[in-house]
Amino acid sequence: MSYKSLMWFLIIVLVVIGAWKSVTILNEDQQMIVTRFGQLTRPPVTEAGLYLTLPFLSKSSVYYKNLIEWHSPVSEMPTEDDKFIAIESFAYWKISDPKLFYERVATIPDAEKRLTDLLDGSLRDEIARHTLAELVRSSGRHMDVSEISDILKVPEKKSFFQSKGHQPEIMAAIYRNASTALDSMQLGIQLVDFDLKSVNFIRIIE
């Protein structure tokens, strides 16, 4: 009797676990791919809802499909006019192709590491090619510089105030360079936005 009831108990446990494992609830901010022995069994699922898969045989990998924040530590770099500045940047990215992402990146921390390498490099490339004024300013707008600010005694030539800013172009260039690199690497990652949180002198004035 006890042997038989043990059998039944095991069967029931297996059925419950199987049923549990075969159900995947996909939230609105998630997507998944289903693989069986390493092969994709269906196109990537991007619609939210309840999905059934074969228990034990199929493996479902769930990824986010919303925007994911990437942020850099404060990094120091020189501008074209030899000013050392500390820059803190952030980016938004998403997994645009879960299949490629699954095959080539697989985890979010890994993706973030690749983004860090790429974005930090692109940022340094562009910053080194421009003066600080070009980075800080966005247009060639004529500024009203009153004497009050001379109290701070920042040694700067007056002509500098007429220099044109290139911030939008610089940001666009960084975005373009990083995006092209990402596309050519085919990681299934799409860069949505890249911007600078803060730009500051390393030592406070002088």
């Binding site: 800080v136 300013r137 966005s138 247009s139 009203d144 600010s149 911030q167 949180k197």
Partner: peptide, 13 residues
């Protein structure tokens, strides 16, 4: 980011 960009086009004064 927005405030940094905005203020970058105006002088201290």
């Amino acid at each position: 980011a927005a405030m940094r960009t905005a203020i970058g086009d105006y002088s201290f004064h």
